[in-house]
Amino acid sequence: MKKNLILLFLLICSVKSFAYIKEIDELYNSFYMNSGNESVEAQVQGLRDKQLDKLQKQIITNVTVVMEVRASTESKRKIYKYLKDNVANNDPLLSEKDPDYLASLADLMTAFVNYATLNELMEYSNKIIDLYDKALAINPNHFPSLLGKAIYVSFMPKFYGGGYDKSMPIFKKAEANAKENWEKHTTYLWMSQIYFVEKDEANYKKYFDMAYNIFPDAAFVNFVKEENAKGVSLFEHY
């Protein structure tokens, strides 16, 4: 159970809050404070069973599919197909005016590229950034898109406009717009990992401690603490 939860957290770290469905924030708070012995499956199913309009339903589907695949024991080939089919269910876009929807689709595509071919990775990388940028054009302070873009840019090659120096200003803006405990927790944790890689001990300790103090008993933050003690950053688990 705890091992699967850690694996799930590694992907959910890149999944964000969707403001108008309060149960999603409740779900993520439950995930990040989880000690590894509790189940959140009932909350996930409850979200999927909610009576919502088509757009909101698709947001829920996009979010929970990302959660589901990380804990899946299916083969990579089956997960690849499952994710690809769910990405296709969003084509054409249900909306280009709802930042929550755009961010949820970008998150789903981010999950997909972990299993995709090199050609698909190149194709979807542009789409992912474009979706986050469209959401931020609607709302420049949209936390889900700020955090999602910051994480994605951290992994992008420098020649492609990525790197920690490019992502840190986006993380800083996400930090300024984080309101829920889990939003602050994940933002601080990712920022601490950049400082960890860059060997900035003072800022690493500052941001890790802020993340840790929000959910000190959580399995995930303690897993990251153990890995950092071995010299391994969160980035190396993706």
Rank of each mutant, 00 (worst) to 15 (best):
K225R: 15
D107Y: 08
V69N: 02
Y80G: 03
T117Y: 10
V113L: 06
W182Q: 01
E23M: 11
S14N: 15
F223I: 03
N126L: 10
I12Y: 00
Q193E: 15
M156A: 13
A150D: 07
F31R: 00
D91C: 02
F215P: 02
V221W: 00
R48E: 15
A178C: 06
E227L: 13
K172F: 06
L5Q: 10
F171V: 08
L105H: 02
F235G: 07
T187L: 11
K205H: 13
Y132M: 05
L121Q: 14
S17D: 13
F235H: 07
K127E: 09
F171C: 06
A135N: 04
S104V: 04
D98F: 01
M191G: 06
G46M: 11
A176K: 13
L10K: 14
E198M: 13
A103P: 01
K57T: 15
D85E: 15
E201P: 01
N86E: 14
S154M: 04
S30W: 05
I151W: 04
M1W: 07
K205A: 13
V224F: 02
A111M: 08
G148K: 02
E198L: 13
L10I: 12
Y238P: 00
K205V: 08
L147Q: 10
M210D: 09
A137H: 12
Q51P: 01
N181F: 04
K172G: 00
Y188D: 04
I138S: 04
A218Y: 01
M191P: 01
V224M: 05
K172S: 14
I170R: 02
K16S: 12
L189Y: 05
K57P: 00
D133C: 01
N89M: 10
N89K: 15
E183D: 03
V224W: 01
P99W: 05
N222R: 13
N126S: 11
K199A: 12
A178S: 14
A71W: 01
Y212Q: 06
E198G: 00
M1Q: 13
E41S: 12
L83G: 03
N126P: 00
Y152E: 03
L146E: 07
Y188M: 04
V65E: 10
M67W: 12
I79N: 03
K173L: 12
F159P: 01
T117K: 06
Y164E: 12
P144Y: 03
E41K: 10
E68H: 11
D130I: 00
K50L: 15
K179T: 12
V197N: 10
A135R: 04
L118P: 01
N228D: 13
K173S: 11
M168G: 09
Q56W: 07
L94G: 05
H237K: 14
V66Y: 09
I12D: 10
S72T: 08
T186I: 14
A135H: 05
K179S: 10
S39K: 11
